[in-house]
Design a protein around this nucleic acid. Structure first.
Lengths: 233, 233
DNA sequence: GTCCTTGTTTGCGGTGGAGCAAACAGCAGG
DNA sequence: CCTGCTGTTTGCTCCACCGCAAACAAGGAC
């Protein structure tokens, strides 16, 4: 295994306040792995053996409903912890994680969790803040689904993705990983047909430019008006 | 202030493994308060000064959307921690807590959180498990709202309430706090009209008995079939 | 008891968005 | 180049559910 340089994780909130030497110790117990596009990092229901830190790429986290439908819970971006079932007291993964593009992630065995948490308080704290903020995000999503209609939900979702993983291009801000209409539908509780219709409409109005597995927001401000249902129809 | 007996909290998971003397110490820094029915324990957006443990009663936790609509996040039952914004790194409460019936709750100042957590590992661990399980519940709710229709969502919600806070009566299992059609609607992302219609239908079919702020499940098995959409129409 | 507030029921009409079907386009691989 | 696969677009129909309106109970205050 190649040597893992401490600079990989030095800047991350999870390791704030951890000294250089200690970073090396933490890394010594981690294993780094490459996850090619569309491969599963772990699978829903599987025994949770490791927890992960995404070094590069984007991970799609999805749950399958009892009825067999997929729901995308979130996208993980660089520097985030994921698969931290152990921190929630679970022995199996509640969702599946799939690489949206080629990814590199560190993995630690769950058995190290208590030790890491005890030795590096900022690490444990960061993990719990991660869970806390995901709880808030998920609550916000429940509110959206309860009170907004599909058009606003999709607008909100796209704005969130762009904010989280936007890449500037000459024509606007683009979501910098491939995402299908189906994916967006599974994030917003609707169908790919409806997503397609709305995106087409927005494209005619010059709010977005979109193509195969691509979405570029050209007029974020106007799209925000859509999200808030304050746009002249 | 009356003396708080350690037996109040001795059996709770949050204090598993804490000795009797230490329980007294924990209680010494807590204040107990009575919250009459319909009074607010804390309010959304308010500076979070305390965290709470519900000793008796039921608390409704609700969020108000930007558009002014209410969404009920959950009901808190006896023995649960709530208002633990501090554990999520928040300085304000993300939701409001209202007593569904007369309640008694312990309150600790947030400033004690780090100390309690450090001194009583099981306390911190329990808090984080609480947050973890709420995240899972909320995720499950997102899945429900994405994939199920209103009838199933309401059935699931009522079954969950009954399981969590059911009280046996001669005619079935009753939700043992007052709950309106409006409340159920705000838990399931629908309207009180639709809830009323469905409950009326179920009452004709003998699945439930319901009255003013009351719901009694008389045929849990059949209601579960409704929840799973496996019932002969 | 009567009044009044709060919660519930029910009818009716309109519609947002699902479901189905079919054509179309971009990209990979031979 | 053509072939096939995967993702996208768009039209049409239908219905679950919302929104409005109005009548109807159940308690509580007095």
């Amino acid at each position: 295994m190649p040597h893992l340089d401490r600079s990989l994780i030095a800047g991350l909130p999870a390791f704030a306040g951890v000294s250089g030497e200690e970073l090396d110790r933490v890394l010594a117990s981690a294993r780094s792995a490459r996850h090619p596009k569309d491969s599963e990092v772990f699978s829903q229901g599987e025994e949770a053996g490791h927890f992960f830190l995404l070094l590069s790429g984007h991970i799609r986290v999805a749950q399958t409903s009892p009825g067999g439908q997929q729901v995308v819970a979130r996208y993980i971006t660089e520097g985030e912890l994921f698969g931290i079932a152990v921190a929630m007291g679970r022995s199996t993964y509640p969702a599946s994680a799939v690489a949206a593009i080629d990814c590199v992630a560190l993995a630690w065995p769950n058995s190290l969790w208590p030790e890491l948490q005890a030795r590096f308080p900022s690490f444990g704290a960061s993990a719990y803040l991660t869970i806390g903020s995901r709880l808030q995000d998920t609550q916000a999503r429940v509110i959206e689904m309860s009170t907004e209609q599909v058009e606003q939900r999709i607008a909100h979702t796209i704005l969130r993705l762009v904010k989280q993983s936007g890449r500037k291009t000459e024509s606007g801000i683009e979501i910098d990983f491939p995402i299908t209409r189906q994916d967006i539908a599974e994030m917003t509780g609707t169908t790919l047909h409806t997503v397609s219709r709305l995106l087409s409409g927005w494209e005619s109005d010059g709010l977005v430019r979109s193509g195969r597995q691509k979405v570029t927001v050209t007029d974020p401000h106007e799209l925000m008006l859509v999200a808030e249902n304050r746009r002249r129809k």
